[in-house]
Design a binder for these strands. Sequence first.
DNA 1: GCCAACGTTGGC
DNA 2: GCCAACGTTGGC
Length: 154
Amino acid sequence: MAYWLMKSEPDVFGIDHLAERPDQIEPWDGVRNYQARNMMRDQMRPGDGVLFYHSNCTLPGVVGIAEIATQSRPDPTAFDPEAKYFDPKSDPDNPRWYLVDVRYVRHLKRTITLAELKEHSADLLKDMPLVRKGNRLSIMPVTPEQWNFILSLE
DNA sequence: GCCAACGTTGGC
DNA sequence: GCCAACGTTGGC
């Protein structure tokens, strides 16, 4: 079982939206970055743990825990000309983009802020892309050590 | 294959 | 709203 961190903008789709979904599950569509795609397509497995991160907001940070609910499958929004993330270069016979379903587990008791996590960017979290300047990766692997450490801050 | 231009992310 | 950092695109 592996661990991940997944970013989302709370104004668009935050942890509260996930918790309020029927079955508390949501397809993680719209990812259009190859590194992030490869992780979803090739490495994520049902049951993997997810740190749910809020980005582009007043208090960026880890706000909850989710889990991977399904194996990856092609992202249908890439084939839909009406969809925001339509990609004419993605062919149903040879899909370019993939998604997994994400299931809500729980809110954290408080937000573990990016500022707090950055305090550990020289030691415990030094290999985590999240705490590096200019990082834009929306999905990243988390080691068991990082997972345990971050949640110990709760 | 190089690289400038462009668009997006996301903290602040 | 600003802007640094970065990924992608497309001309050559």
